[in-house]
Design a protein around this nucleic acid. Structure first.
Lengths: 194, 194, 194, 194
DNA sequence: CATGAATGAGTTTTCATTCAT
DNA sequence: CATGAATGAAAACTCATTCAT
């Protein structure tokens, strides 16, 4: 039906516009009018398709996050050994500079989730998804404690992205060797501990 | 002059109230009214002492960040070896749970700095300060590439704090061993790479 | 659409209220609240229909000025000779006493135009329109230098209106003979100069 | 006494600053803080020396107007005949362009006087003073109806200044011949009327 | 399904005025 | 005489949400 199709397309345009604006202006500064204008739609449509601005923002943010998470699997699948994995992780810092739309949207959403239980659940799911994918790959490459390592590496990537926005010197070259040290294989990982 | 003293005290109360509210409500949701009310002061005082809400928030946030940064030095000085250092870093995750005022304020400020060049400069200074303190300690403990390691560890701590707000399972116990692996000493750090 | 019709009517009521208040309180003292209250409308409507208070005031003032300018043509068309023209101009001083809404609005708008380039353009158009109408009539009556004369007479009328507000003695009777002297016909206008 | 002298000087600096700001920003937009800042004085001083902002503005404006009025006498005294008078009046349009501080201050004050009875009285005095000086000179030069003529010429000058701000084409050259026509001497002024 | 006018509470900011020192 | 901190009432403007059409 043309009617239903249109409805779906309108919804999608609103979600896309909202995601853009979250990154540009910040979560709390996104207004219904701005979203409608960016989407080229009538202002009344936002509340026609979404219960509230918060609902629109949450759905828009989670949609982007899930999309990014889904892209991670194939990306890690192409990695042959631990060295290539460290390289891939470091390289992703160049893609997500901290000021790009995706990076900003992630952090904005983390913070918004701090204050919205429902969103918190959604974001937690995305994080778990990311971590599972990474942990699986780590296990396949023989890295010790793949679960914890994946958790810490995932969080570290977010932190690096966050600080990169303020400090461009946090380059892939600086990060690569440190990441590599965390990718220790069974039986040898404690030899230099103490 | 009592007049000037009072002025200074009022200024401080506004800064304290603003810092609290940044953590509670988020940077963009802090209003002059809320700050004045929290500080128990007349609403007009905010703009008497500060040029704008943004100026108040920036100063309040940076004051807290500098205070926390200043506490890091003594804390690291009490650490005897790499193992204790890993323990101290992991333990700080219990202090900064991701939902506590200081943690949230840090992330809120990182994001705000993305959109305010002046604040960006101030935040960058704090990050550099943190990193220098940590790098110095790492060097003293013989850790390789102390600068890069400090940078990555600092960023990772922020990322861990960020995700901890959404996932309490990211415990000190899970983090400690991974951190320890990054604290490699000279001559042996690459033996298990590859 | 009734919706659009209502919108137009509301807009008009805001414009009318604004024009009244410019005259009563002065350009800079017209507030959104006062306009909405005078128009009997909700306060939010001002900024729904107009981008800013300045925009509302400018549009309101120019609408009145254009209306007055449009009335001048027919008025001058009914004048038979120079004597009647002088009489008509002098008589208009009784209509525009300097304290009536239209007079005050004109002067307020002149001043506001000094500080607003866009308004300046609009006001200049009105002045040109006035002058053209008067110059045409002067030319038809054989008055020398119709353009300059119209310009000076138009400006003089504004000045007289301005001072009449402060000095009611500036009556039509006092003004009439002086105006008449400016309405000189070809070939003889310089005979008593020197 | 140094104390009294200082007080007088401070008063004068406030008046000067206020006059500047009336022209720059408009009567209603002059704030005590702005005046104090412009004068380089503490903000509390305004209300120490003046009962209210309105009182300060009125006194400041009238002081300037009286100063300008006082300069007119000597200026007209140097005029030898009607032609030179017309030239002097036309030339003053170049001095008072309509956007210069003095011109704007005059019009601002006229308008403010519309709404302040006390100020109205003061401004009326200045106008009467201007008119008397001009009328005396006109009488000496044999111009008919010197009182009315002076009144109309004075008002016309204000109107010309007012419109000059919006229309630079209202030049001295365009105005001169029209003014000259109003300066008719006894017995011949009606010969070309009709 | 869609529109856009309307509402009223909320925001930041400015300010004249007062007053303790 | 002078200071500048403090107050509280405005001001302009924004906005989520509702609703008649």
């Amino acid at each position: 039906m043309t009617s239903a199709q249109r409805g779906h397309e309108v919804r999608q345009r609103l979600l896309d516009a909202a995601a853009e604006l979250i990154a540009e202006r910040g979560w709390a500064a996104v207004s219904t009018r701005a979203v409608a204008e960016r989407a080229g739609l009538a202002s009344g449509l936002v509340h026609y398709h979404f219960a509230s601005v918060q609902a629109l923002l949450s759905q828009a943010a989670l949609a982007v996050m899930h999309r990014v998470a889904a892209e991670t699997g194939p990306l890690l699948a192409g990695v042959g050994d631990r060295s290539e994995l460290a390289e891939a992780l470091a390289a992703s810092l160049d893609a997500y500079s901290g000021t790009d739309p995706v990076s900003v949207l992630f952090v904005e959403t983390y913070l918004a989730a701090t204050r919205d239980p429902e969103l918190r659940t959604g974001v937690a799911e995305v994080i778990v998804q990311f971590r599972a994918v990474l942990a699986t790959r780590l296990a396949e490459l023989g890295v010790v404690e793949p679960e914890s390592t994946a958790a810490v590496l995932g969080a570290a990537m977010d932190g690096l992205v966050l600080q990169r926005a303020l400090d461009p010197k946090l380059s892939a070259d600086a990060v690569r060797p440190v990441i590599r040290r965390t990718l220790v294989t069974t039986g040898r990982q404690e030899e230099d501990g103490r």
